[in-house]
């Protein structure tokens, strides 16, 4: 439970920690999109270099990121596997009807693998270097234009920030309840599936009860302090666009141009 990396924030004072969450969000999503421009080893190499550089800039050791990929590794390998089996082209190494292992299949598999890992790394960079509350503010700011179309952006972002705010509490509490039931002789991850399901009840029920109680307390607390869903809200934390945020976006444009050049000059595989 405590080992989860993706979605966590690690306090620090790197250049990336300092960036505006809007810049980080836009750059992160944009990076995932331009990954699909890459089609040869030159473009992938460039993206890799860029990813490693960004990770370096976060001042967080590489091993933290590697640990972050680990829980997803089976999902990634499974996708890669399918890709290898169902892509044809180039030299055929093995051929069993619809299942073939071919040159293109293998190359494609490798590409997919790296694409996946880069997506995980870059998303992890964004969450590790951004406070959850800043992330919500950033999302809120970026979605604001949707308000014109009657999308309840403020409510969404309130819901998001409350959920994010209580994730650490919930994790803490899960740990405590698990410890308490363990002390009473409960064993987790043992025995048949039915037995394992049964050991979950004494954990989830108390968590459920306390979450409901907390939600009610929070709602009451907000109400007595005059919260109204319809009110216009000012914000205590102001997002400030700085020069380095512009640099961040410029870097993304530079990366795009380099990718497009390498894509056309390099040799594509398909």
């Amino acid at each position: 439970m405590n080992k989860l990396i993706l979605g966590r924030y690690l306090p620090g004072d790197s250049w990336l920690h300092d960036l505006d969450p809007r810049a980080k969000l836009v750059a992160g999503v944009y990076f995932i999109l331009i990954l699909f421009i890459a089609n040869n080893w030159q473009t992938y190499a460039l993206l890799w270099l860029f990813t490693l550089l960004v990770m370096k800039l976060s001042n967080i050791p590489y091993r933290v990121y590697i640990r972050g990929v680990r829980p997803l590794i089976w999902l990634i390998l499974f996708t890669v596997f399918l890709q290898i089996l169902f892509t044809a082209g180039g030299t055929i190494y093995i051929d069993w009807g619809i299942i073939t292992i071919s040159e293109f299949g293998l190359i494609n598999g490798v590409y997919i693998f790296f694409r996946f890992v880069m997506i995980v790394f870059i998303s992890t960079v964004v969450t590790l270097t951004t406070k959850p509350i800043d992330l919500t503010d950033g999302i809120n700011a970026l979605l604001r234009p949707l308000k014109k179309f009657k999308v309840p952006v403020d409510e969404w972002s309130l819901m998001l920030s409350i959920s994010l705010r209580f994730i650490p509490n919930l994790l803490d509490e899960t740990q405590k309840v698990m410890d308490a039931q363990r002390a009473r002789g409960s064993e987790f991850g043992e025995g048949s599936l039915v037995k394992q399901m049964k050991t979950l009840v004494p954990i989830f029920l108390p968590l459920f009860v306390s979450s409901l109680n907390r939600a009610e307390e929070l709602a009451n607390g907000m109400e007595v302090r005059g919260y109204q869903a319809s009110g216009t809200r000012s914000t205590f934390r102001q997002l400030k666009w700085k020069f380095q945020d512009t640099i961040c976006l410029m870097a993304m444009i530079g990366l795009t141009i380099a990718l497009v050049i390498l894509r056309t000059s390099g040799v594509a595989f398909h």
């Binding site: 509490e173 405590k176 309840v177 410890d179 308490a180 039931q181 363990r182 002390a183 009473r184 002789g185 009840v201 004494p202 954990i203 029920l205 108390p206 306390s210």
Partner: peptide
């Protein structure tokens, strides 16, 4: 060990579930 050492956590009422 856990059978021998009875542990009452802080705010133990949080462990009630049945």
């Amino acid at each position: 060990i856990r059978k021998r050492v009875g542990m009452v956590f802080q705010f133990p009422e949080a462990q009630l579930f049945a």
